[in-house]
């Protein structure tokens, strides 16, 4: 078997290969972009007329993250293309930076997934009034909090330590965004009780719960039926 085929296959799908061997083979934290693209065929997302399936295993989770980043990037791109009235210059600067971060996340997943990537999603932002600061920031807050809870919930579904670390590198940036957006809506709400519970823990949501919310902003239909559940 070729090394690139072996390196990213999820251990559960290879009964003969122990988890330790998987990590040894996967080795250090360098993953070539092409590596993910060489996973087994049954990881692949399936596109039908009705819906886009995210796929299974770690590839499915990466596509799930890719879908959310597509949504966020499309949203901030539209926000920054024509700002609502009443935005300060600092606020516009920060929102443009957030746009760039989300585009960086989206393009990273696209390249990392290669041929396993789901297609570009069609968004539906008809419920958002982009001329209204209140509407835009409320949506931004919802997206950022949702993103944090999605990555927090998906961590345990990831098998590869490399991907887990990458998710960790992104989720704390989403949390920084969430806190900033919350503060410019209402200063001091960066981590209030609507975001953080009595144990001092942020939210963690499973893919189906996240996609139920995200789906209201998407024309494309996504299914997560093949994603890992534990």
């Amino acid at each position: 078997m070729k090394l690139e085929n072996e390196s990213l296959i999820v251990p559960e799908q290879r009964p003969g290969v122990s988890r330790r061997r998987f990590f040894t083979v996967a080795g250090v934290g360098i993953l070539a972009a092409s590596a993910i693209a060489s996973c087994k065929k049954d990881d692949s997302p399936v596109v039908t007329d009705q819906s886009i399936d995210l796929g299974s295993g770690d590839v499915g989770i990466l596509n799930y993250a890719y879908a959310l980043e597509q949504l966020e990037a499309a949203f901030y791109t539209k926000v920054a293309a024509s700002f609502y009235s009443g935005a300060s210059s600092a606020e516009m600067d920060r929102l443009k930076e957030i746009r760039d971060h989300e585009i960086a996340h989206r393009e990273f997943f696209k390249n990392a997934l290669g041929s396993k990537a789901i297609p570009a999603l069609e968004v539906d932002f008809s419920s958002i009034d982009f001329t209204s600061r209140t509407s835009v920031l409320a949506t931004a807050k919802a997206f950022e909090d949702l993103g944090v809870s999605a990555y927090n919930g998906a961590g345990k579904l990831i098998v590869s330590a490399d991907y887990l670390l990458l998710a960790g590198k992104i989720v704390s940036v989403e949390a920084r965004h969430a806190a900033y957006i919350r503060d410019i809506i209402s200063n001091g709400s960066f981590a209030d009780s609507s975001a953080v519970d009595a144990n001092g823990l942020d939210m963690a949501k499973m893919p189906n719960d996240v996609l139920a919310v995200a789906g209201t902003y998407l024309k494309s239909k996504i299914t997560a039926k093949n994603l890992p559940t534990s």
Binding site: V171, A175, D183, F190, V196, D202, A204
Partner: peptide, 14 residues
């Protein structure tokens, strides 16, 4: 641990 991690990031942001 992830749920604590993102709370620390919210703190840092503020």
């Amino acid at each position: 641990a992830l749920q604590i991690h993102s709370v620390e990031a919210r703190h840092a942001s503020h």
